[in-house]
């Protein structure tokens, strides 16, 4: 019987789940849970709905694997993505009465925004620290680009910064944020 310390390939996972191995099912959940949750959160921007979607997705995935509905273990990731998106569509259709994800606008009267879904305490602090290393014009660029969603050419013109430099500023700020966040969340 596999232990959680062993890393099973997708093929091994699929085979064992087909045989009714509960531990393999738990390992499947461990392997893909964060991705399913992140995908749901990216589509619907509600932590509650994303958790519901994750639970329903794994129910269906495990049921399908037990019934040998997966043609090839190589396509396991794509298979799980497909089920995830179907679950999300059904949830959105049921709760918000829209026909497709493209019709669905996640800013529902100020509730369920991307910011509320993605932010935790460390994220805000990591950005503060990363932003403290930037010049005022560089911070203005981040606001204009990610919040006001202005095109780069317009930002470059308004701030008097070359477009190539804007890409560098963005990448430096992101890299700095990544390193600080990693340090903050290190177990």
């Amino acid at each position: 019987m596999p232990t959680s310390l062993e890393i099973l390939s997708n093929q091994e996972l699929v085979t064992r789940i087909r045989q009714g191995d509960a531990e393999a099912e738990a390992m499947l959940y461990e392997k893909f849970s964060a991705r399913v949750y992140f995908t749901a959160l990216s589509e619907i921007h509600s932590k509650e709905d994303a958790e519901d979607a994750r639970a329903e997705t794994f129910l269906r995935v495990i049921q399908a694997l037990r019934q040998d509905k997966l043609r090839s273990a190589d396509s396991l990731p794509a298979f799980i993505v497909g089920i995830t998106l179907n679950v999300i569509r059904e949830l959105v259709r049921q709760k918000y009465r829209v026909d497709s994800l493209e019709d669905y606008e996640y800013d529902i009267a100020g509730d369920g925004s991307l910011e509320q879904a993605m932010l935790d305490a460390e994220t805000g602090r990591a950005l503060e620290e990363a932003a403290s290393q930037l010049k005022p014009r560089e911070r203005q660029f981040l606001r204009m680009y990610f919040y006001e969603e202005l095109p780069k050419e317009e930002i470059a013109r308004k701030l008097g910064i070359k477009e190539e430099r804007l890409r560098l500023i963005k990448s430096r700020a992101l890299q700095s944020f990544r390193e600080i966040y990693k340090k903050m969340t290190k177990p």
Binding site: E128, Q140, R143
Partner: peptide, 21 residues
């Protein structure tokens, strides 16, 4: 994941006025 957190944090900071001129 990092990009999503970063964008969310920038938007929130912008909304609060932290990145204003």
């Amino acid at each position: 994941q990092t990009m999503a957190r970063f964008v969310a944090a920038v938007r929130q900071a912008s909304r609060k006025g932290s990145f204003a001129e």
